[in-house]
Design a protein around this nucleic acid. Structure first.
Lengths: 210, 210
DNA sequence: TAAAAAATACCCCTTTAAGGGTGATTTTTT
DNA sequence: AAAAAATCACCCTTAAAGGGGTATTTTTTA
């Protein structure tokens, strides 16, 4: 594992006040060492491999290449480095994109430096820290609509359809006849006001029915 | 919104030591009030509506009805109540199931009472608290495999297939011919060693390629 | 306990999609 | 310049999708 005593941090953040503030606080109130700070990814990319950081604190709103676009590149340059995202915005899409692309943690900028230092510690220990507002959005993205127009069986069948299964596979899996599956599918289409698998999946996902 | 001063908590947990311990600490070191504690859901279900709790702390490993099974019932009985799950285990499936079924937060039992009190506060303010190890698992479930055998285009097409789109819809969306889509699909099948949409989706999801 | 909702199953029908084989060109990356 | 990725086209057969209608049994709820 890593040696926490010497863990190296790099901060990529365009706002000089925030950048220097975090750097100062990490250096003076924690065991971690900020080895470099950069105002943009485009400046950082040529030097960051030499820094060999254990953790990168990456702002999303950067001039030039955005933090989101920088993420996959950084993961390729430094596969073992943990990346904690920082942002002022917190749209569900942005958060999910960042996490899907390899971010280890995600914080909004109203997060105190103490929490960020705690997050560095957590990330070094294999955790996945995020601020409560971010966690809320992630949880919401996992939650299903409580008052679905679909019955349990219909929801179950629609989920199987969404996994690419055809009628006969669904029938086999649920120990019912193909014709029964067909009837359920027809009722699903009527309830969702669609007339194809693709549209049913689209509507169901938009309304978090599946 | 809720009045934080009088927020009512119910604890459902079979271990008496843990149950009383959390209750004592919440009552004596926070502004929240534990109005009832129960050793199982089966005992709680008849009385909990009268308790009208703002937050329920729900153990997963309960005698009789498990916390996972109790979750949808509780959501129906008390739709506006926040539920924080507690567990000793932390399998990805269990966590995702709990969150998908309406849990507001998720903690493992090595979590300090202070963190639980903080979690109650966060949940009352609309946050979605979870312990770092849980957050890690949630993040992992969102992350894609970095070294996929599929090309970008193939991944993109497989994602559209997984959304139930057929060849012609994919062709339209990507501004390419149906025949090209077909070729990509054939190459996907060869790379994943499958010969159907359903199997391709299954293998791809198992390996987090999509 | 009676009514309503959900789940089950079968018949008709037509159109469309899926999957496999083979070969080839162009574009992009390395 | 070579390799990888993306593009397109023709052959073929079988399987699936979607729309229509009807009807029974089981489960849930009022």
């Amino acid at each position: 594992m890593y040696n926490q005593e010497t863990a190296k941090i790099v901060i990529i953040e365009d706002d000089e006040t925030i950048r220097d503030g975090y750097a100062y606080l990490i250096n003076h109130t924690s065991v971690y060492k900020v080895v470099s700070t950069y105002p943009s990814f485009d400046v950082a990319k040529h030097k960051i491999v030499k820094d060999a950081p254990d953790v990168i604190i990456l702002d999303i709103q950067l001039p030039g290449t955005s933090g989101i676009d920088a993420l996959p590149v950084l993961k390729k340059l430094l596969p073992k480095t943990y990346i904690i995202m920082l942002t002022v915005y917190e749209t569900e899409k942005m958060i999910l994109d960042a996490l899907a692309n390899g971010a280890s943690g995600y914080f909004t900028k109203n997060t105190s430096p103490a929490k960020i230092i705690e997050a560095i510690k957590e990330v070094m220990q294999g955790g996945g820290p995020m601020s409560p507002d971010v966690a809320k959005k992630v949880i919401m993205s996992l939650q299903k609509n409580q008052d679905s127009p679909l019955t349990k069986r219909e929801t179950q069948i629609l989920e199987l359809i969404a996994r690419g299964k055809d009628r006969s596979q669904i029938a086999n899996e649920l120990f019912i006849e193909i014709e029964t599956v067909k009837t359920h599918v027809k009722n699903i289409y009527i309830k969702l006001n669609v007339n194809s698998k693709a549209d049913a999946i689209k509507v169901a996902k938009a309304n978090k029915l599946i």
